[in-house]
């Protein structure tokens, strides 16, 4: 027995869509399975069952909460695919499959949900990493921020690759794959209370293709990490801490778009703490840096890659920056969250 199709034009999510009954089955069929369509999902089991090659596996999970749900250059759906693929890829691994869990707030327009799921499916297809299992829950109005998505990813590490945040060594070079802060500024530009506009788009992208090219060319890479929340500065501090080393970076070498610099000046923010969703940091022995840089620049997602600094011995594990002005300063962990300021 089948009721009328879901009204993707004017309808909205209600509690019945999470109730486990026919309305939920209809939402799963007409939206999720139709969008993510693949053999494993079509089996309609509570789990996906598949064979993998022997070797070292990686597994990661990430929750996505973002306001607004749609932003220039992406939305929460594409972000949930890219972000988790990137976390898998930062071990040097080849991502194999994703799971997705949706917590939907009652009242979310079905049109918005559909737009997000289609964008997520497109991102997954483009990346070649299928969403093979999922879950949907609906919470009462006021108990969620429209939509939360959690994705889990698994991947396989190619033989001979050992990449970890504790492997940076004095003498290593530090590279980034492109301009810093684009995602954070693009999202902030959509927040009414910050009151500025820009043409900038989020850099949200799946980086596993770039990483595959990088590890193939220089298997000696010590660390990879994507500088998401907390930006370049916080991520470098994490790596310095894990590895027990210091770092010195050059301000003039860090790629930065004019719009990001301008927005940060206006809001009193430091672009080094602003989030990225399609960039990575790579650390490897200095002797290999130019080879890696060339490979990165050959890839569409690494065109603006640059060597930005080096790893040094420092028992304080300070990340320091040689400023464009000629002085030196600390680049510290972010304290709390970065707030726009007036003084």
């Amino acid at each position: 027995m089948k009721g009328p199709p879901l009204d993707f034009r004017n309808g909205m999510v209600d509690m019945s869509h999470g109730g486990g009954g026919r309305a939920m089955a209809q939402l799963v069929d007409e939206l999720f399975i139709a969008a993510f369509d693949n053999d494993l999902l079509r089996q309609r089991n509570d789990q996906a069952s598949f064979a993998v090659e022997a070797g070292r596996m990686v597994m990661t999970t990430d929750g996505y909460v973002i306001s607004p749900l749609f932003f220039p250059g992406g939305d929460i759906g594409s972000l949930a695919v890219h972000g988790t693929i990137n976390d898998v890829a930062m071990a040097g691994a080849v991502p194999l499959a994703l799971s997705a869990s949706f917590i939907i707030e009652e009242g979310l327009p079905l049109a918005d949900l559909r737009r997000i799921v289609l964008s997520m499916a497109a991102a997954s297809r483009e990346a070649g990493v299928p969403v093979v299992t999922g879950d949907t829950k609906v919470v009462e109005r006021g108990k969620g921020d429209g939509l939360f998505i959690t994705t889990t990813g698994i991947g396989r590490v190619p033989p001979g690759i050992t990449i970890s945040g504790d492997l940076a060594r004095p003498g290593d070079a530090i590279l980034v794959s492109g301009s810093m802060g684009d995602h954070g500024v693009a999202v902030m530009s959509q927040r009414e209370n910050l009151g500025f506009a820009t043409d900038l788009k989020s850099d949200s992208a799946a980086l596993h293709g770039l990483v595959a090219a990088m590890v193939a060319a220089t298997p000696s890479i010590h660390c990879l990490r994507d500088p998401t929340r907390g930006g370049l500065a916080s991520t470098l501090n994490e790596l310095a801490h894990q590895s027990g080393v210091g770092m010195i970076i050059e301000e003039t070498a860090i790629p930065l778009r004019a719009e990001v610099a301008g927005a940060c000046e206006l809001l009193g923010l430091d672009p080094l703490y602003v989030a990225n969703e399609g960039k990575l940091i790579a650390i490897l022995p200095e002797a290999e840096a130019s080879r890696l840089l060339a490979v990165m620049r050959d890839h569409p997602l690494g065109r603006e890659a640059a060597v930005i600094g080096r790893v040094v011995e420092d028992r304080h594990r300070f990340v320091q920056m040689q400023t464009a002005f000629g002085g030196r300063r600390i680049v510290d962990w972010l304290a709390g969250e970065q707030l726009p300021r007036i003084c």
Binding site: S189, G195, F196, T198, L200, A258, A261, A263, E265, L266
Partner: peptide
């Protein structure tokens, strides 16, 4: 305008 960013 400042650095490609506009503001009212």
């Amino acid at each position: 305008e400042l650095g490609g960013v506009t503001k009212q």
